[in-house]
Protein backbone atom coordinates (compact mmCIF):
# COMPACT_ATOMS: atom_id res chain seq x y z
CA UNK A 1 0.00 0.00 0.00
CA UNK A 2 1.31 3.44 -0.91
CA UNK A 3 2.06 5.87 1.79
CA UNK A 4 -0.89 8.25 1.69
CA UNK A 5 -0.67 12.00 1.76
CA UNK A 6 -0.43 12.97 5.41
CA UNK A 7 -3.54 14.91 6.19
CA UNK A 8 -3.55 17.53 8.82
CA UNK A 9 -6.55 17.30 11.06
CA UNK A 10 -8.03 20.59 9.84
CA UNK A 11 -7.81 19.45 6.20
CA UNK A 12 -9.50 16.17 6.92
CA UNK A 13 -12.28 18.05 8.68
CA UNK A 14 -12.69 20.32 5.68
CA UNK A 15 -12.68 17.43 3.23
CA UNK A 16 -15.40 15.75 5.26
CA UNK A 17 -17.50 18.90 5.32
CA UNK A 18 -17.04 19.39 1.61
CA UNK A 19 -18.02 15.79 1.00
CA UNK A 20 -21.19 15.95 3.07
CA UNK A 21 -22.13 19.42 1.82
CA UNK A 22 -23.46 17.91 -1.40
CA UNK A 23 -25.72 15.26 0.11
CA UNK A 24 -25.97 13.11 3.26
CA UNK A 25 -23.39 10.39 3.25
CA UNK A 26 -22.44 7.28 5.12
CA UNK A 27 -18.92 7.22 6.50
CA UNK A 28 -18.03 4.49 4.07
CA UNK A 29 -19.30 6.45 1.12
CA UNK A 30 -17.50 9.48 2.36
CA UNK A 31 -14.14 7.88 1.82
CA UNK A 32 -14.98 7.17 -1.79
CA UNK A 33 -16.42 10.65 -2.26
CA UNK A 34 -13.30 12.29 -0.89
CA UNK A 35 -11.21 10.31 -3.32
CA UNK A 36 -13.47 11.50 -6.13
CA UNK A 37 -13.32 15.13 -5.04
CA UNK A 38 -9.57 15.05 -4.83
CA UNK A 39 -9.36 13.31 -8.20
CA UNK A 40 -7.68 10.35 -6.48
CA UNK A 41 -4.84 12.50 -5.30
CA UNK A 42 -5.82 12.11 -1.66
CA UNK A 43 -6.31 8.81 0.04
CA UNK A 44 -7.60 8.82 3.57
CA UNK A 45 -7.22 6.16 6.19
CA UNK A 46 -10.42 4.57 7.23
CA UNK A 47 -9.53 4.57 10.92
CA UNK A 48 -9.01 8.31 11.55
CA UNK A 49 -12.17 9.14 9.61
CA UNK A 50 -14.39 8.17 12.51
CA UNK A 51 -12.76 10.26 15.25
CA UNK A 52 -12.96 13.21 12.84
CA UNK A 53 -16.67 12.56 12.25
CA UNK A 54 -17.39 12.29 15.97
CA UNK A 55 -15.45 15.45 16.62
CA UNK A 56 -17.40 17.39 14.00
CA UNK A 57 -20.63 15.95 15.34
CA UNK A 58 -19.65 16.96 18.86
CA UNK A 59 -18.95 20.49 17.67
CA UNK A 60 -22.27 20.72 15.91
CA UNK A 61 -20.79 21.11 12.39
CA UNK A 62 -22.42 17.97 11.07
CA UNK A 63 -25.28 15.88 12.30
CA UNK A 64 -26.14 12.24 11.85
CA UNK A 65 -29.18 10.01 11.59
CA UNK A 66 -29.78 6.34 10.99
CA UNK A 67 -31.39 5.49 7.68
CA UNK A 68 -31.88 2.60 5.29
CA UNK A 69 -28.94 2.03 3.04
CA UNK A 70 -29.17 0.79 -0.56
CA UNK A 71 -28.80 -2.85 0.46
CA UNK A 72 -31.55 -2.63 3.10
CA UNK A 73 -29.30 -2.27 6.08
CA UNK A 74 -29.51 0.63 8.48
CA UNK A 75 -26.54 2.92 8.26
CA UNK A 76 -25.62 6.20 9.84
CA UNK A 77 -25.86 9.14 7.46
CA UNK A 78 -24.04 12.38 8.05
CA UNK A 79 -25.05 15.78 6.71
CA UNK A 80 -23.90 19.33 7.13
CA UNK A 81 -25.65 21.55 9.68
CA UNK A 82 -26.39 25.23 9.09
CA UNK A 83 -23.46 26.18 11.28
CA UNK A 84 -21.22 23.82 9.39
CA UNK A 85 -22.40 25.29 6.09
CA UNK A 86 -21.59 28.85 7.21
CA UNK A 87 -18.23 27.80 8.46
CA UNK A 88 -17.44 25.97 5.22
CA UNK A 89 -18.40 29.02 3.19
CA UNK A 90 -16.10 31.39 5.04
CA UNK A 91 -13.29 28.89 4.92
CA UNK A 92 -13.68 28.38 1.18
CA UNK A 93 -13.63 32.12 0.59
CA UNK A 94 -10.56 32.50 2.74
CA UNK A 95 -8.86 29.59 1.08
CA UNK A 96 -9.62 30.92 -2.39
CA UNK A 97 -8.11 34.27 -1.52
CA UNK A 98 -4.95 32.64 -0.27
CA UNK A 99 -4.83 30.26 -3.22
CA UNK A 100 -5.16 33.22 -5.59
CA UNK A 101 -2.24 34.93 -3.98
CA UNK A 102 -0.09 31.84 -3.86
CA UNK A 103 -0.96 30.85 -7.42
CA UNK A 104 0.12 34.26 -8.62
CA UNK A 105 3.54 34.23 -6.97
CA UNK A 106 5.59 31.78 -9.10
CA UNK A 107 4.62 33.55 -12.34
CA UNK A 108 5.52 36.98 -11.06
CA UNK A 109 8.29 38.69 -12.92
CA UNK A 110 10.45 41.55 -11.75
CA UNK A 111 8.79 43.94 -14.17
CA UNK A 112 5.39 43.42 -12.58
CA UNK A 113 6.48 44.47 -9.11
Amino acid sequence: MDKPVDLLQGRLDRLIRTAVSLRPLRAYGMQVRIQQISKNRVEIHQGPLYPALYRLDHRGRITSEWDESENNRTAKYYRLTAAGKRRLQTEVEKWNRIADVIAGIPGTTTEEV
Binding site: H45, Q46, G47, P48, Y50, P51, A52, L53, Y54, R55, D57, H58
Partner: peptide
Protein backbone atom coordinates in the same frame (compact mmCIF):
# COMPACT_ATOMS: atom_id res chain seq x y z
CA UNK B 1 -9.24 -0.12 8.52
CA UNK B 2 -6.48 -0.25 11.10
CA UNK B 3 -6.99 -0.68 14.86
CA UNK B 4 -10.72 -0.73 15.44
CA UNK B 5 -10.34 -0.39 19.22
CA UNK B 6 -8.02 2.53 18.76
CA UNK B 7 -10.46 4.24 16.42
CA UNK B 8 -13.20 3.74 18.99
CA UNK B 9 -11.00 5.18 21.71
CA UNK B 10 -10.31 8.22 19.57
CA UNK B 11 -14.01 8.62 18.85
CA UNK B 12 -14.70 8.58 22.59
CA UNK B 13 -11.95 11.14 23.07
CA UNK B 14 -13.50 13.30 20.34
CA UNK B 15 -16.73 13.47 22.29
Amino acid sequence: FGGIERAKEECRDAR
